Computed example of a mutant assay.
Amino acid sequence: MRLLWAALSLAAAVSAGPDRSAAQSAEDPVVVELFTSQGCSSCPPADALLAELAGRDDVIALALHVDYWDYIGWTDSFGDSAFTTRQKGYARASGHRTIYTPQMIVEGHDHVVGYKPMKLAELIGRHGDAAPLADLTLRREGDKLHIRAEARGALPRKLLVQLVRYLPEGTVDIRKGENAGRTIKYTNIVTEWEVLGGWDGTEPLEMEVAVDGDKPCVVVLQEPGHGAIVAAARLR
């Protein structure tokens, strides 16, 4: 894994180019969604790769556990039918009829099916180089999350403002199914994905929402219909 990750990091560094600073990377992170399942024998390598990505400031790595493998003997303790629906939405938007695990979606646009670290590195670098269409900042005061966004130009269309909460890690002893007998540590496990409203970019976005607990907060600005992610920000 470390050798594979070294290759991934190298590929990302090469594709990012010499002009992209660490500050820019942290300010405009690339969103990587992993659709995974505790009942999928092909998923642990991708789960481990997501754990490596979770340590990077220039990436927001999110694990969405689906429920369609539960029938083979093990119910995913993090599974949610809403995440299965989200993955199906991405499939429809891209003209695909079938969904798979593991699958990573980069910036709501590019699909990586299976464990393909080099392809993922290329996509992260490519999206990281792209000029963001909006500036997005978050600030939390107690149980209030303040969201501010400002368009850098005309937006392609009205965007969905979405709030994501996740559990940083969780370890599961899997007793049945394809991974029976394995103890697997999962990272950045999404527990909530909520649409807060819409924004057309003509005026700066100013929004305040109630949040509780100490789970990290992520805000994602995305084109409707499971389209491209325009901007994202995180408070750990």
Rank of each mutant, 00 (worst) to 15 (best):
D28R: 15
W74Q: 10
V190I: 07
S21Y: 06
Y71W: 09
A51W: 01
A16R: 15
D143R: 15
V211M: 06
Y90W: 01
A91I: 03
D19E: 12
G89V: 01
L160V: 00
L120T: 03
A228E: 13
T36M: 06
H96I: 01
L133W: 08
N188E: 05
T101C: 04
V112H: 10
G55D: 12
T98S: 12
R157T: 11
L155G: 02
V161S: 02
T183M: 11
F78N: 12
V219F: 06
K88T: 05
I105F: 00
A232Q: 05
R140Y: 02
S81W: 08
D143P: 11
E203K: 14
D67P: 08
V112R: 09
G142M: 02
I99T: 07
E178Q: 07
T84K: 01
R236T: 13
L167E: 14
Y71N: 07
D47I: 03
S9L: 12
F83C: 01
N188S: 10
D110V: 00
D76V: 13
G73T: 05
V161N: 07
D47N: 09
L62P: 05
A131E: 15
L64Q: 05
I147T: 06
V30L: 03
L4H: 05
D19I: 02
A121N: 03
D110A: 13
R165S: 07
Q24G: 13
A151H: 02
G201Q: 08
